[in-house]
Design a binder for these strands. Structure first.
Length: 700
RNA sequence: AGCGGGAUGGGAUAGCCAGGAGAUUCCGGCGGGCUCAUAACCCGCAGACCGGUGGUUCAAAUCCACCUCCCGCUACCA
């Protein structure tokens, strides 16, 4: 079991935790059904954003990345996430394995050299990866990063496409030079990938999204970069000393490296990484078909939905070509949104791991929320108020209360598990719950795994209520309570993957031998000890004022950041990953003032009027354009404006605006635009009046 | 723009692949009951024409076509 590697350039937040906790839940659940597993992960240390951050702070990239890595390694266990091995991509095991894989790709003849236009900083003589270049988008004319028109049309830009390139680091104009890079000819593996994608298990998005590529034309994939920070390209033939491997080559290899580290720590008898991953490259046997037997492990990758292609195209192609075994499943989870909006670390819209722990909440509560809030591949929303509701309604009132009331009743009246047989109804209910738990695992749906325990607790609450043992004589009550204690034990075992700490405490109350972490689902129907301890309340309710406070703090943070970054120019909803890139952004430049003067007469020619937007609707087929009907007092104008991505179209009607009414007419996407609505900046902040100037009033 | 995922009572969410009884469950609302328990739990009621339009069918939330909106990907962001 692996989780997508957290990229070592930011603090941990709920977005990271969702997929990592899911991996942990899967792993624990697999152990509960008796499977041997290894849960491995590591920090992703290389790549341009870390190099940029390091340069800005005047530190080495390794130092910067290691600092984040250590924080991660420390924080994951605080959320009950127990990796069997947590390494990082800059460790010798990964460096070695990565270079071995690349050598294998070359030995198999899958690599081709191609010349690529690379931007150079002429002052420092440094090659600049496209992340380090800014310029003008050739498609829309907006300011853009070298790899993507991030502020304008959003298009991906090929190297060399950007106009007027400027080095991010020095601000000097960059120049293009031809550089030789290595490309992985994915098309060589096309047939293999087509078969692979058909047998791949996991979420629907991961099984379907890559089909467009795999059944279309597979492009050559550039696997080297002009940078210092990364794993050196293995250059036995010489000529590529200055290239490092692209992070997406060495990052997934960490899955193998981390497994190997685990094997080496516990011994190959206890866990043999080769039994899972297969034999790997063998210089004596250059043909992929004739390699040793594939691993017998079932590799499952838990990732975020943004990196599906990397795990379903590039990665299996690498594995295949290097003689390693393919993943059995890729499980891609949706995002975590906060208060209904996309997570944005730079804008303060995030719930931080540290913040959560400092608020004094048990890790189990967040684990429960994140695993059961929605379908795995769907986005789920986090809000502090909903967090409180779900914890109090489901964990405290249902699961916690059932465990407490039934075990307390048993302890008070019988000192433990009363002597009686478990009824057939209850046995059946427990078996059903175990089945639900297994179905969740088989379907790669952690929510079902988590719900199995809560649903069984709800059954238990109904059971104890309907049978009213407090109104029965001792013998009859003993039978009911015997059933309830059994349900409680089953609930505890089934809840362990999601709420391990709580489950362990209940396990201790029951005076069960060993740890619940080692128990299997078989224990759900085994008799609990005849005597056990007085139970404690398993959960503390979440206080309303406490979460209101946290929510307010979050809101403040977002508001503050909004005013701070008004000139920042970022648009639209950001994903957490886009956001990681933000550290690379310098503040957007304010355009210099125009030196050339115009006459007053020329200004008089501009006929600008106060108007009010009467209606607004998106222009069909256009991403950004909105068709507006604007009342300018004496007239009603149809104006097309590029506001769609920056404003909620439904909110526009009623807005007072300033309109340039004598602009020449234009036709945009087949819609006539008769005038221009004035707006400021990249965010298209609409100009308006501060008092109530009449509609049609002239602006001078 | 292309591709993938999603849209189901006020909120959340299951069902869709393998079409068929009153569309699941939780929260919230209303009414009642109970008291072992962290004043919670149990029972009952109201509330959705299943994003839209059209089609296939005896029968569509489910299959097909087109459309709208949200999220992701589009190969040099990680």
């Amino acid at each position: 079991m692996t989780c997508g590697l957290p990229y070592a350039n930011g603090d941990l937040h709920v977005g990271h935790l969702r997929s990592i906790v899911a991996g942990d839940v899967f792993t624990r659940a697999l152990r509960s059904v008796g499977q041997e597993t290894a849960f491995v992960c590591g920090s992703d240390m290389h790549g341009a954003p870390i190099a940029v951050e390091a340069e800005q702070e005047g530190r080495s990239p390794r130092e910067v990345a290691l600092e984040y890595h250590e924080t991660y390694a420390e924080q994951f266990p605080q959320f009950g996430v127990e990796f069997d091995n947590y390494g990082h991509t800059d460790e010798p095991e990964n460096v070695e394995l990565t270079r071995e894989v690349v050598r294998a790709l070359r030995a198999e003849g899958h690599l081709v050299e191609k010349e690529v236009k690379v931007a150079y900083d002429p002052t420092t003589e440094q090659p600049l990866p496209d992340r380090f270049v800014e310029g003008t988008c050739p498609y829309c004319g907006e300011r853009a990063r070298g790899d993507e028109c991030d502020e304008g049309c959003g298009r991906h830009l090929e190297p060399g496409e950007i106009e007027d390139p400027v080095s991010v680091a020095t601000g000097e104009p960059a120049e293009y030079r031809l550089r030789e890079h290595e490309f992985f000819r994915l098309a060589d593996l096309q047939e293999y990938l087509q078969a692979f994608i058909d047998r791949l298990e996991g979420t629907a998005n991961a099984r379907k999204q890559p089909r467009e590529w795999i059944f279309g034309d597979l492009e050559d994939w550039c696997i080297t970069r002009d940078m210092d920070w990364g794993i050196d390209y293995p250059d036995e033939d010489g000529g590529h000393e200055d290239l490092v491997l692209y992070v997406w080559v060495d990052a997934p290899v960490e899955y193998i490296a981390s497994t190997k580290q685990y094997s080496e720590r516990v011994g190959a008898e206890a866990y043999d990484w080769r039994a899972v991953w297969g034999e790997g490259p063998d210089p004596e046997l250059p043909s992929g078909e004739e390699r040793g037997p594939p691993g017998r492990g079932d590799i499952v990758h838990v990732i975020g939905k943004d990196i599906i292609q990397h795990h379903t195209v590039f990665w299996p192609a690498m594995l295949r070509a290097a003689g390693y075994d393919e993943p059995r499943a890729v499980v891609a989870c949706g995002w975590v949104t906060v208060d209904g909006e996309g997570l944005s670390t730079s804008r303060g819209r995030a719930v931080w791991a540290e913040e959560y722990l400092e608020a004094g909440f048990e890790p189990d509560l967040l684990r429960y929320y994140l695993t059961t809030a929605g379908g795995f591949q769907d986005d789920v929303d986090f809000s502090w108020e909903r967090f409180r509701q779900r914890v109090n309604d489901e964990l405290v009132d249902d699961l916690g209360n059932f465990l407490y009331r039934s075990l307390l009743f048993a302890h008070r009246n019988y000192g433990g598990t009363p002597e009686a047989d478990v009824s057939e109804d209850v046995r059946a209910a427990v078996r059903d719950a175990v089945e639900q738990f297994r179905d969740g695992l088989d379907g790669y749906e952690v929510r079902e795994v988590g719900d199995a325990a809560v649903d069984l607790a709800r059954f238990g609450n109904a059971y104890i209520q309907n049978n009213e043992p407090w109104n029965l004589d001792d013998d009859a009550a003993a039978r009911v309570i015997r059933d309830c204690v059994q349900i409680a034990k089953a609930v505890t075992v089934l809840a362990e993957p999601v709420i391990p700490d709580t489950a362990e405490r209940v396990w201790e109350t029951l005076d069960e031998p060993g740890s619940v972490h080692d128990a299997t689902v078989d224990a759900a129907l085994e008799t609990p000890p005849a005597e056990f301890h007085e139970p404690a309340e398993p959960f503390e309710p979440v206080d309303e004022d406490h979460v209101a406070d946290l929510a307010a703090r979050l809101e403040e943070r977002v508001a503050e950041s909004d005013t701070d970054t008004e000139t920042d120019g970022a648009t639209g909803a950001e994903s957490e990953t886009e956001d990681m890139a933000d550290t690379a952004d310098t503040d957007a430049d304010v355009e210099p003032l125009t030196q050339e003067r115009i006459s007053h007469e020329m200004f008089q020619e501009l006929d600008m009027r106060v108007g009010r937007i009467e209606s607004a609707e998106p222009v069909e087929g256009a991403d950004e354009l909105v068709r507006l009907e604007v009342d300018v007092g004496v007239d009603r104008r149809q104006v097309v404006a590029g506001l769609q991505q920056l404003h909620d179209v439904d909110d526009l009607p009623g807005t007072r605006v300033v309109v340039l009414v004598n602009l020449e007419k234009a036709e945009l996407f087949g819609v006539e635009s008769n005038g221009m609505v004035l707006a400021a900046g990249e965010e298209a902040d609409l100009l308006t009046t501060h008092d109530d100037a009449a509609l049609g009033g002239r602006v001078r």
